[in-house]
């Protein structure tokens, strides 16, 4: 009986150790690690696992997802940056890479990585309760103008992407809002459904089930084009306000990774991105797929980083 038990314990250890994830010379001759700065089970993790699986075949090696979480993304981004620049560690970089540096929370920026590609962008949308007196963005702005600081707008946390989206709206429309930070987008949406706040500025994907059920209504989205899932919702540009703002995700490797290695990785991940499995997966998860090459990604980040820092200064979030 003792033997059985010992065997059982050994099995348990193996499970635990296997669950810890493996650590990652011609390229690639061994598995590649994909560092995700966010927890297993979240949106970023889902994309990493979906894409990782799809890119394994073209790469000819296994891709292991390693969730290095903590510090609002700071720890994982740092781990990916400080990894060996041999291409065996790829990092899924996210929007927080632009908002953490102005707060002086991390000593590095996106410029300290070599970029591989951008994967998706998800715009912010201004959403209110279905029975709200605001029918259009104009109603909302006008009310906020006559009642400065009165409208409670929920966001997903201090200095989070959706907090900055609301800040940008304030700046461009010349209004003053009352920002209410929540611990993530879902609790903010719940409070809106319960009628405890007046609006949220989160992505369409995060409110779509309530909008489709007729509990909430989207006034406008902060992108260049309308969302195919919500063809009736105008963009802010159409509504007369020049506001575009989106969160994004992309892939990067440590600085000075050899060019040929970067090419192999970029090709493999692009093939994975184009694969029918990944496209199907992205559609189901309502991801706003938006591939951009390394060079285009850089131009995009230069502009977004400047916008982000400016808004953060306005919101007193930048040091």
């Amino acid at each position: 009986m003792k033997k059985t038990f010992a065997l059982l314990l050994i099995c348990l250890f193996v499970i635990v150790v296997a669950g810890c994830g493996g650590q990652a010379e011609k390229f690639p001759t061994k598995p590649v690690t994909l560092v995700v700065p966010w927890a297993a089970g979240g949106g970023t993790d889902a994309i990493a696992r979906g894409l990782g699986k799809a890119a394994e075949k073209p790469l000819g090696q296994t891709i292991t997802v390693n969730n290095v979480t903590g510090g609002g993304g700071a720890v994982g981004h740092g781990a990916g940056l400080n990894a060996k620049n041999d291409g065996y560690t790829v990092t899924m970089i996210t929007f927080e890479l632009l908002s953490l540096p102005p707060q002086k929370l991390i000593p590095f920026t996106y410029k300290d990585y070599d970029l591989l590609m951008r994967l998706n962008t998800d715009p912010a949308a201004l959403t209110v309760k279905a029975d709200s007196p605001f029918k259009t963005v104009k109603d909302f702005v006008e009310y906020a103008k006559t009642n400065p600081g009165k409208v409670n707008v929920g966001n997903s946390g201090p200095a989070s992407v959706w907090h900055l989206a609301a800040g940008l709206l304030e700046e461009k429309a010349g209004i003053k809002l009352n920002h209410v930070p929540f611990n993530g987008a879902a609790p903010a949406v719940t409070d809106l459904v319960g009628g405890h706040i007046q609006a949220v500025t989160v992505s369409p994907a995060e409110v779509q089930s309530q909008v489709k059920a007729g509990q909430l209504k989207m006034l406008a989205i902060m992108s260049d084009k309308r969302d195919p899932n919500f063809p009736d919702v105008p963009t802010f540009k159409e509504a007369g306000y020049d506001i575009t703002f989106a969160t994004w995700r992309g892939l990067a490797v440590p600085k000075n990774t050899p060019e040929n290695v970067k090419k192999v990785l970029a090709d493999a991940f692009k093939q994975g991105y184009d694969s029918p499995e990944f496209q199907e997966f992205a559609k189901k998860a309502s991801l706003g797929l938006a591939y951009a090459s390394a060079a285009d990604f850089k131009t995009f980040l230069d502009k977004t980083a400047a916008d982000t820092e400016a808004v953060m200064k306005k919101l007193n979030l930048a040091k």
Binding site: S209, Q210, K212, A213, K284, S286
Partner: peptide, 10 residues
């Protein structure tokens, strides 16, 4: 959601 089911009133 990934399985194509959006929880919620619908």
């Amino acid at each position: 959601v990934i399985q194509g089911l959006q929880p919620g009133p619908l």
